[in-house]
Design a binder for these strands. Structure first.
Lengths: 107, 107
DNA sequence: ATATGATACATCGTAATACAAGGTTTGTCA
DNA sequence: TGACAAACCTTGTATTACGATGTATCATAT
């Protein structure tokens, strides 16, 4: 299908969380689980490569900080990242509507 | 994430169409495009292997028929296929709700 | 008469994605 | 002290959808 349609795009979820506040990797995993009522149980082997990729692409920046005795790597969304987020949000909306249309399900 | 959650599952869309009536491959492609307002433009390189897999798994059966001068391979959903359809429909519903929950979007 | 494009099937190689499995360090609590 | 949670990471692997390409038949336009 249209590649952009792939809503497996975890980018969308991660970028959205970071658009609300800075977070570190492990926190993203737990936050996703809690907000989705445990539907999303993102694995670390999925998240960390994803964050590194987003950083390389300039959608997020990162810095390390020691907090509560732990060294954490915090991520902050960039202007570019916000642009992508808006676009992916729209793609998700379109995709979901299309699936529901095919299934004859109400939005 | 949860593997089952992957709504990239085109199986869902294809099985749903076949649950309404028998269809042949090429028809599925055009039907998906028309119902989704051209959001879904499934490629033949995607569909045919998918149908073969569904057949091997016993979710559909197939038979060839000459109609309108063309030899077509029609697919019919099986009981097993209907079971899977119901399950995937539920998974889609759950997945979409979870995404919307994370994004703070209304259903 | 012939060329083009739509119909209809198919396969093969490739890129992206998420995961499983494994590993390290530090802190907390029994 | 030992176990477990927090927090980061990498490598290999399976799945998925796609691009490219191929074949054959039929309709339509030139």
């Amino acid at each position: 299908m249209a590649r952009e349609a792939t809503p497996g795009g975890l980018d969308l979820l991660v970028l959205h969380l970071l658009s609300e506040r800075e977070m570190y990797g492990y926190e993203i995993v737990t936050e996703l689980a809690s907000r989705s009522n445990a539907v999303f149980q993102m694995k670390e082997g999925t998240l960390y490569p994803l964050l590194h990729r987003l950083e390389k692409e300039g959608a997020v920046t990162a810095y390390e900080e020691k907090k509560e005795g732990r060294t954490r790597r915090y991520y902050r969304i960039t202007r570019k990242g916000r642009g992508r987020l808006a676009q992916q949000r729209e793609e998700w909306r379109e995709y979901a509507a299309a699936v529901n249309a095919v299934l004859c399900m109400p939005g």
